[in-house]
Amino acid sequence: MNEYLRQVEKELRLPRRKKQEVLRDLREIFESAREHGESEADVMERLGPAADYAAAVSVPLCGKRRSGFALPSAFLALAAALIAVFLAAQASRPADNIIGQADAMTQLRVVGGLDPAPLLLAAGVLAAAGAAVLFALHLRRRRREKP
């Protein structure tokens, strides 16, 4: 039985928690059959080759997975929004030498204090980097789980 379980475990391409669930259920299958007077060989014959059993249970268990692109996409959207706000702030900013020019309204800009614009840019760049890392992790996981 343990060898059969090991083989199934080796064949399963599932997240760890689902793998554990399949193995738990298999232990119960063997245990229940034993209670009803069946031998391990009987059960293994009914289950068929470990690879076949693993393939059969993998289909419904990996079918309903999140696409995995949701979180990285959200980060990317946040990055785009932050950078857009930064660019908009830059565009509406009066030119530094505006005072003294006759054709423009005189404005005074108080320099000093905390200017939020660079912070927006930094947050945007961080979010973009986060999105890139999450995309990379997701792609690596998909490659690894592919049978």
Binding site: I29, Y53, L61
Partner: peptide, 16 residues
Amino acid sequence: AKEGTVYPILYRLQGA
């Protein structure tokens, strides 16, 4: 009926 037929359906029904 075999476990190899029934359990995948149980997993699917639970997933749904």
